[in-house]
């Protein structure tokens, strides 16, 4: 199984903690697996909660008018890359 990069693991922890995913270990999340729908099975409330947590932790806001959102929310890897590129903190 492919290992998570340290930053991906950090985001995986944020994800598990923010969304109270009690039965999931951060290191078990597959980096390319879809976060929404199938895969981790998150819904749009989770997306909002995650966006608010990212803004608090990394100092930048995900905006709904960003047409890359579908790609950004596609997997842990895509999300981590997006945060790494845009973080202010």
């Amino acid at each position: 199984m492919e290992a998570l990069s340290p930053f991906e693991l950090e985001i995986a922890r944020l994800l598990v903690e923010t969304l109270h995913l009690e039965d999931i270990q951060p290191e078990d999340i597959k980096p390319e697996e879809p976060l929404f729908g199938e895969g981790l099975g998150l819904d749009s409330i989770d997306a909002l909660e995650l966006a608010l947590a990212i803004s608090k932790t990394y100092g930048f806001q995900l905006r709904s008018d960003d047409n890359q959102n579908r790609r950004v929310f596609a997997s842990l890897r895509a999300l981590s890359q997006h945060i790494a590129q845009n973080r202010a903190i």
Partner: peptide, 13 residues
């Protein structure tokens, strides 16, 4: 419109 994970982001904004 309800479409994709960022729908509620738009609502919140």
């Amino acid at each position: 419109p309800v479409s994709g994970p960022d729908t509620l982001l738009r609502v919140q904004e």
